[in-house]
Write a protein that binds this DNA or RNA. Structure first.
Lengths: 159, 159
DNA sequence: CTTGACCTTGGATTTAACTCCAAGGTTTAT
DNA sequence: ATAAACCTTGGAGTTAAATCCAAGGTCAAG
């Protein structure tokens, strides 16, 4: 049997996290010592590892709660149910990735348009893009600068 | 001049959001009516659009606050400063994408290993993977099932 | 017998960006 | 003049997953 700090160290989480999981019904110690200390069995530890593996593939604690309830009553669930949870998570993840890819492309375009040099930001392409429109970015042309080529090598503009 | 509801509708945000932005120093109306109504100028509207564009490329409100302070004092900032913000955001976004790609791959592997059929989850590959280890997933072999091929077509296992 | 490490509980705080609410004042249209 | 639609303020609630705190009990070592 592990005390809370032992299990925490073993699984690289904080004791507070284990208490949090208990409060939220994910993992309760199977017993208590005479003085009230939580005592976790090896099977409690397995359950914790299940939780952590599910977290590691992106499930929220609410979703893990569902998975755990299936896990404890497997015979009354079908593969379709389990796969459904995974596929639904997969869809969420793909959607989030897609949003972030959108950000990524936009930010990269902004970054590429800016010389990133010591010039005043008065004509900064990034600020100008945010002032008017994120699409259709114009590259900088620091006319007062003596070495124009130095800081504009990233820009994809034509003309 | 726009009243709060007008500007909100114009920019497709809620009036509450505008009050929230004001409370957090992002956007204050340039005046008030005699009765205390907020009155936003065209330039306030432009500032709001700046905020919304920055949000659309992934910046947080805290980061947008920084961008706005640069925007209002451009000549005392360099392109390098602005590009620095963008590149730092880019790095964060890339990191998050990378984490989500990790989730994506793991979930896809789990999904592929599971037949997703009406069979009992007692031998579900997904649950088994979460019980032991996310890597090295074993596909299902529902020995009691009469049509083995029907639900195992997704599995990549060898042997 | 006391120090230090560990444990208990309940509850508060954190982060981000809103969103909602109540109680009341203003404007506009009929 | 009255109802509908709009506005004001201050403050509370939401979500997720912890994380931290205070006040106090327990246990092993020296």
């Amino acid at each position: 049997m592990y005390r809370i700090g032992e299990l925490a160290k073993l699984c690289e989480v904080k004791a507070d996290t284990l208490r949090f999981y208990e409060k939220h019904g994910l993992l309760a110690p199977s017993s208590r010592s005479d003085s009230g200390y939580r005592l976790y069995s090896e099977s409690d530890a397995e359950r914790l590892r299940f939780i952590l593996r599910a977290k590691a593939v992106g499930f929220t604690l609410a979703e893990i709660t569902e998975l755990l309830s299936i896990e404890l009553d497997k015979s009354n669930w079908a593969c379709a149910d389990v796969k459904g949870l995974v596929d639904s998570k997969l869809a969420q993840v793909n959607e989030k990735i897609s949003e972030l890819n959108h950000f990524q492309v936009s930010l990269q375009r902004l970054s590429d348009a800016c010389c990133g040099g010591p010039e005043s930001a008065e004509h900064c392409s990034i600020l100008e893009a945010l002032e008017s429109n994120t699409d259709n970015i114009k590259c900088e042309n620091h006319a007062h600068h003596h070495d124009k080529s130095q800081y504009t090598k990233n820009c994809q503009n034509k003309g």
